[in-house]
């Protein structure tokens, strides 16, 4: 049963994890994107539609990423060029994503696809418990696991990472180095949208193999929350996302066991858990907020 929950945690947490890694990049550069939810939805639909048309889930994942990126471009333009309020713009983007995908996705609701299927890794997947939990997933999940250490390396061990973090902390430093911080932020927001889109595609192409209106159900919001929970660190964000996934998996397990708990309380559990996780870290001293980002939160809510 524990192994079931852990496997489920990875399976249903991967979409949130991908989105949270993307959001982490964006927030490290000083832009918070609440529209991650919309980007995920766009990715879920774009990925699903492309898989239906081409039959190739890899193309689907790529298209999903591009759809997410396209949506995040709106956010980037408004926030970086027009000085719009980041939170308001992100929320509008979320709303836009829900509306657009509900409309364009009508004809895909009953479609069926083959999509990604679990591909056990030879030898490794034969390890008891661990093999089942870690090495019996769809290819996107493996890639997402590799992404986390890669992202950590880029962020904290390379020049690109330093430039990215400088954009979120002190843009003056970048000006002094002859780098345009706005370009860096653009790239970060777009990368964030791309990953959120792939996360959405993972949901529709690899996890559920279907498209349902508003299928992300707040996973994008959870992804944003998880970045804060993770204190802007990739590995912790991964942990948080899998925690959310575990709460989702618990739902299925409890239902299978036939325990007398209303499913609605189980549906709530992942969100309550996310709130609880946030509460625990927010009580600590918050020195890890990128400076540029803390200005967004501290700025008055007037606009």
């Amino acid at each position: 049963m524990i192994a079931d929950i852990l496997t489920g945690a990875l399976r249903s947490g991967t979409s949130v994890m991908l989105a949270s890694q993307g959001e982490l990049i964006s927030e490290r550069a000083g832009v918070i994107n609440l529209g991650t939810e919309g980007c995920m939805l766009a990715g879920a639909l774009g990925g699903f539609a492309t898989t239906v048309w081409t039959g190739n889930p890899w193309l689907g994942a790529l298209a999903g990423g591009l759809c997410g990126m396209l949506l995040s471009l709106i956010h980037a333009c408004l926030v970086l060029d027009r000085g719009a309020n980041q939170l308001a713009s992100g929320l509008t983007l979320m709303f836009f994503g829900i509306g657009v995908t509900a409309f364009l996705g009508r004809s895909f609701v009953s479609e069926q696809i083959v999509g990604f299927n679990p591909a056990p890794i030879p030898v490794l997947s034969d390890i008891p418990v661990l093999g089942e939990v870690l090495f019996n997933h769809d290819p996107l999940t493996y890639l997402s696991m590799l992404l986390v250490p890669a992202l950590w390396f880029v962020l904290f061990r390379t020049r690109i990472g330093i430039i990215l973090r400088a954009a979120g902390e002190r843009e003056e430093v970048l000006f002094a180095c002859g780098v345009n911080p706005r370009l860096v932020r653009y790239a970060a927001v777009l990368a964030g949208g791309f990953l959120a889109g792939i996360g959405g595609a993972q949901l529709s192409v690899a996890y559920t193999h279907s498209w349902v209106e508003n299928m992300t159900a707040g996973r994008g919001v959870v992804a944003v929350a998880m970045v804060i929970f993770a204190a802007w660190r990739p590995f912790r964000a991964m942990l948080g996302a899998y925690l959310f996934g575990a709460a989702q998996a618990l739902q299925l397990t409890v239902q299978q066991q036939g325990l007398p708990i209303s499913p609605y309380f189980l549906f709530m559990a992942p969100y309550v858990l996310t709130l609880a996780a946030l509460l625990i870290v927010e009580r600590r001293k918050r020195s890890s907020v990128p400076e540029g980002l803390s200005r967004v939160f501290a700025a008055d809510a007037d606009g």
């Binding site: 027009r82 308001a88 983007l93 509306g99 509900a102 606009g303």
Partner: peptide
């Protein structure tokens, strides 16, 4: 129509350049 609402807002945000960003 949510798209229309979102578009109205996007343009408002884009048009209100620099106001209390």
């Amino acid at each position: 129509v949510h798209m229309l609402m979102a578009l109205v807002l996007f343009f408002l945000m884009g048009g209100a350049r620099g106001r209390k960003a």
